[in-house]
Amino acid sequence: MKTLAAAVAVAAVGLALGLWTTQAALNGRLRVAVDRLGGWTVEARAGAADADPYTRARLERDGEIPLALGEGLRLTTRQDSDGRPLDPRCVYKVGSHAPPSRYWTLEAIDAAGFPLENAAELYGLRSNEILREPDGAFWIWVSASVHSGNWLPVAPGARFGLALRLYDPALSGGAVGVEQTSAPRVIRERCE
């Protein structure tokens, strides 16, 4: 009787732990099968036929159509460069350089990866649209209230993330480890 109770307990705890780790690996709480580029995560193999089982499972579950290898790369972060979660009550500046690519776009996303509701109906900025300093450096201001310069609005009240998409990037999936310094930093300027 005691052995049976122990067996049931072992099975229940094991099942729960197994399901929790699967869930955590897929929603990003456990970092499995993702590369880091600066403070950003990249699923470099998401757009390749030999994607790993974690990446495949996440894509199938979310219904995302990933950028293919050779087409582009998506870098995502839900934290600032000091590792704190992005908070809509704060003002962030993102810059000053992006990894080399033909074009890039920066978008603010919600928890599920969709654009954020905002009064300006501005969902993203393109690399060809932004104001730059003479040497090509740029700063993008991410905040819920209007900001001068390059402004990327976020929705008040909800946690958000940033998605940086590189089209025709000069870095391939394999070179992700090499270019750590080229990813833009996300600097928290001030909070209300």
Partner: peptide, 24 residues
């Protein structure tokens, strides 16, 4: 517990693609 957890993790992970109905 570790063995059961690891097996559950693997089975769940590999089963998701075949049970996901709303994939791309």
């Amino acid at each position: 517990v570790g063995v059961v957890a690891a097996l559950t993790h693997l089975v769940a992970l590999l089963a998701i693609p075949s049970v996901a109905e709303r994939d791309a």
